[in-house]
Computed example of a mutant assay.
Amino acid sequence: MDRSVVSHVRDVRSLSLDRPSIVVIGKFDGMHIGHCGIFAEGVRRRARLQEQPDVADALLVAITFDPLPTVYFNPDGGLKMLSSPEERVLLARQQGADHCVVQTFDRHTAELTAEGFVALLVQHLRMTELVIGEDFALGRNRTGTPGTLRELGRTLGFDVTTVPDVRRDGAVVRSGTIRDLLQRGDVERTAQHLGRSPFVAGIVVEGVKLARKLGFPTANLQPIPDRLYPKTGVYATRSWVPHPVRAYSSVTNIGYRPTFDGTEFRVESHLLDFPPEGEDGNLYEQQIAVEFVSRLRDETRFADVEELCRQVQRDIDAARTRLAGTAPAPEQAVLLRDLIRYLNR
């Protein structure tokens, strides 16, 4: 794959651009449609800058943070992430970013004043314009509000553009709202806020093979501790596998396997019509992604294994019906192909 789609630096001071740039800054966790609006405005501003006779190759630079400032200041707060830093880079590239900075948020970054931080952007990125959301603030004690940044821009030589919030269902689209939707298992409304189906990626690990013994082998994803997963239950999904990268309709169970008195959190995906004829279907130690399309039911304790198997077959039939005639959006397909190739590089 083209490694440029995931390339990034961990400190803005690592860059020294030779041409002017438009800069977008945000947490961008999950890259929802509000974030996409900020990037779209950045792309428009870059095009406008490139129309100037003395500017041929202006750049769009995206800056996000790892860990997120919220996590840095409250490490025990239990905030779960919607996306990994690498996923945010892929999403930013897809939205048009030429360079990506995943700024390490540590004591030194936390102590930077708003003036000190934007001065770095002017020095290292040749920033001519900053594009941000309406509620954005940066710098120590979050003093870098849009109004303050405009004042700094008049001194340091850059403009500031704020992008209006995007609303869905009468409320502003925010990462917090998306977390609430996922925790309720509402992956369809989550997709409306994200502009694509939610997904999780992870390495396939060996389980106790209970599902295989019952005739429904699963790929068991190793859960990531700080990742937010949809509410426990059963979902119609698409599972993306490597070598070559392909998507399969699937049924994914998230939860604890109550029928077997399970206590360990599991993400288990049963791929339909897999493996293809002539392939062994061994996915152990490989990274796959699971795209959540529709919730089928709650996780349930069944009276016996026979009842469980009958329900699993009904889940498979329901998933085939829900997924029939559907396909991931082209942008989603490109994103997940690039992600799977990157994770299995």
Rank of each mutant, 00 (worst) to 15 (best):
M127Y: 14
M127S: 12
M127T: 12
L130N: 05
L130F: 09
L130C: 06
V131M: 07
V131Y: 05
I132L: 10
I132W: 01
I132A: 03
D135L: 11
D135V: 08
F136K: 06
A137P: 00
L138I: 15
L138G: 05
G139A: 05
G139M: 04
R140L: 12
R140Q: 14
R140E: 08
R140T: 08
N141L: 11
N141Q: 14
R142Y: 08
R142I: 07
T143Q: 15
T143R: 15
T143P: 04
G144W: 09
T145W: 09
T145N: 10
P146N: 09
G147A: 15
G147E: 15
G147Y: 12
T148H: 15
T148Q: 11
T148M: 10
L149P: 12
R150G: 12
R150E: 14
E151V: 07
E151C: 04
L152Q: 01
L152N: 00
G153L: 10
G153D: 11
R154A: 05
R154N: 03
T155Y: 12
G157F: 06
G157M: 03
G157E: 03
F158R: 01
D159A: 15
V160D: 13
T161C: 11
T161V: 15
T161A: 12
T161D: 07
T162F: 04
V163S: 01
P164H: 09
D165K: 01
D165H: 02
D165C: 00
R167N: 07
R168E: 06
D169K: 06
D169T: 03
A171S: 12
A171I: 03
A171F: 06
V172W: 02
V172I: 12
V172E: 01
V173F: 02
V173Y: 00
